[in-house]
Design a protein around this nucleic acid. Structure first.
Lengths: 231, 231
DNA sequence: AAGTCCGATTTGTGATCACATTATGCCCTG
DNA sequence: CAGGGCATAATGTGATCACAAATCGGACTT
């Protein structure tokens, strides 16, 4: 059962935006990141170095380094057996993730706001169109990609590397879980809360942006939490 | 200049609490962590895999994995040159760290509080005695060790792995910087803010504990920030 | 027929080697 | 004596090999 349902994404040989002449362990890291964030891995699923290496067309060595990195970010989990797996979600962990998101992301958005000009805002609105399209289409992976792009684009503009890294780690931790939920119940029940954020940015209203991001997080996470933990 | 002022800490061969039969890369990780948290490394200082390997008495291989892990935690920095160094502090990064600490650590303390019984509180008070002793002694490393133990002991009791990992990453990022400041101005001007936290725990006052931790962070970080950035 | 033990396979770990890239020191040139 | 180019050394990266622990398979026992 070596390759079972691994999805397809091999490491692109060359000419890929953002990973041109980068070291193999970096390309492997980015490839695994993609799978984790957008549903390529099933929570709880065991992962082997040699398996990933074969699946990505590289030797086990760069995989080791990429996996070690993802373990440090808590995107993967190292058990006492010395075996690696995609962490399973628990109600407790989920609650911590929600708290961390609410504590960090609105601030990150506010710090980004002064740097969001016309072109950046246009790009953000374009991404939001993609979100709604994916929602209507009932496309979970497309929704997750666009939704991540929406937040990541804003947060990256904050150029706050420390806070950004913390938030990035958090996203990596609920990515696989999000995918299983949407795969089960679809995306049609979602509502797009991003318009409030966009208009707040347009009028450079910091408090408005903070509460818009907060509401977006609360609404989205409550939906995920309720359908998964039925509390 | 291979060995310059590396400090001494070799990787203890065996019989060390918490790293008995652990893999070498784990022991190396813990050793490097110690150096970073408690002042064994100078910010901005370059670090080489082979150098660390020789300094720790292991092959470069486990060092690679430990360093990759620390890079992911932002305790070390990977430059475009592919060279690794201890990150230098900036006013901007420092500000982000303060925000993250204030956003996460009081909550972590509150989540730990119900689990702090008589024995745990006694242990915490004992650690605080160590802090005051190190302060009077003018011992920066001892102060940093005890201060870290004080916070880490409380936060670990929260058993909140996700939030704990975020906070851990933050501490790793200001450890070396803290050391340079205390090394420059000493620890005699510090005041111990922990009594307020201890008494809040004793009467199980969540809000009181939150504000005590917040004040401790603000006071300590303001001192560090002022002496370093003289703003 | 169910549980247990033992052998074969898989897996993580660590070391060593080879190579490309980068940094460093030296010599030469002006 | 200063500055630039070149040979040498050092460094990160990746592959391969060897080994020990863990897992999994089936055969055997009761």
């Amino acid at each position: 059962m070596s390759t079972s349902n691994d999805g397809v994404a091999l490491v692109e040989s060359e000419h890929l935006p953002g990973a041109g002449g980068a070291p193999a362990h970096e390309r492997v890291y980015l490839a695994l990141r993609e799978r984790i964030l957008f549903g390529g891995f099933q929570p709880g699923r065991p992962v082997t170095l040699r398996g990933l290496a074969e699946s990505l067309g590289v030797s086990p060595m760069p995989v080791r380094e990429a996996v070690r990195r993802l373990i440090a970010q808590r995107a993967l989990e190292l058990h006492d057996n010395r075996r690696v797996s995609v962490p399973a979600m628990t109600a407790r962990k989920f609650d911590e993730i929600v708290f961390a998101r609410l504590a960090l992301e609105p601030e990150l958005a506010v710090r980004a706001m002064p740097r969001i000009g016309e072109v950046e805002l246009a790009r953000i609105e374009q991404i939001d169109d993609g979100i709604e399209a994916a929602m209507e289409r009932g496309d979970p992976e497309g929704y997750m990609r666009s939704n991540h792009a929406f937040h990541a684009t804003i947060y990256n503009l904050a150029a706050s590397e420390t806070l950004g890294a913390l938030v990035d780690s958090v996203w990596l931790q609920f990515g696989p879980f999000m995918r299983t939920v949407y795969g089960r119940v679809g995306t049609t029940n979602l509502e797009d809360q991003h318009q409030k954020a966009i208009s707040a940015i347009r009028r450079q209203d910091g408090e408005g942006l903070k509460s818009a991001i907060s509401e977006d997080i609360m609404q989205g996470m409550r939906f995920i939490g309720e359908t998964a933990f039925r509390r």
